[in-house]
Design a protein around this nucleic acid. Sequence first.
DNA 1: TATTGTTATACTCTATAACTATA
DNA 2: TATAGTTATAGAGTATAACAATA
Lengths: 147, 147
Amino acid sequence: MVDHNELSLTRDVGFLLSRASGLVARQAHAALGEHGLRVRQYSVLSLAADISDGISQRDLAAVLGLDPSQVVLLVDELAAAGLVERRPSPTDRRARLVVATESGRKVLRPAAKAADRRVQEQLRVLSDDEQETLTGLLARIVTSSPE
Amino acid sequence: MVDHNELSLTRDVGFLLSRASGLVARQAHAALGEHGLRVRQYSVLSLAADISDGISQRDLAAVLGLDPSQVVLLVDELAAAGLVERRPSPTDRRARLVVATESGRKVLRPAAKAADRRVQEQLRVLSDDEQETLTGLLARIVTSSPE
DNA sequence: TATTGTTATACTCTATAACTATA
DNA sequence: TATAGTTATAGAGTATAACAATA
């Protein structure tokens, strides 16, 4: 056995972020899998459902922190499953707006609930206030970072 | 453009953890790369250096949250570079203890400093107190999770 | 029987470069 | 010239299963 308090990694923010993220992602992945979604697909579908006019793939990539080429494949998969569709942008003939279909919204709602329930279970070591604090700190890191 | 405040993902802990972790890992990866290390290799080397008697691969896997089979490859790479060595355990002939070599410690120190500097730059949106709070919250999530 | 380390495999994630069509 | 989307590729991360040696 190993005493965690002796280890520099135990106080390393990068390591802790990676570990915590991995643990939570694993739970989310398991919960979403029962609804036929991977985490990445879920996040794309969630964004497409949030923005009723549709969102360009470029904006999807920016919000998700992904390369646009990765978004293409994710949207391909969701479109093949009938959960989103690509519509031509009325203002830019290069762009294609990704919109959640009715079927996509029907899948999204219970999937979101299932994932949230699982993640909440895992975060129950933190009080509601502490979870709020964590969310706020993480959001500031994310929004302050360029690119 | 997209207004972040309208999006459910912007308040999703799992998403924020994944984004923040990715952003920090990218910086750490860039800084460590200049010292010939990837993030995973760095964390193994750091643990091996912290525990002077050596640490079994099984314990490495447990602390790092990795599968033991992944640790084999990481230790292979570090051993090939002369940064760690595998010693037979005096008490268990199945186990092999991973120990940092003198050369490994010489690589580790500046690498750790470079990575820390880069990550600190990225986290400068948070005060020292806030960083402490974040670290504490993350540590509780990690240590409270089974497996 | 269970555990330590190992090999193997497959899938996902991440990073990059290059191309097309439009702006 | 620059941008939106696309295709292609390669390396790294992650998840499993199975096996030999040892406990």
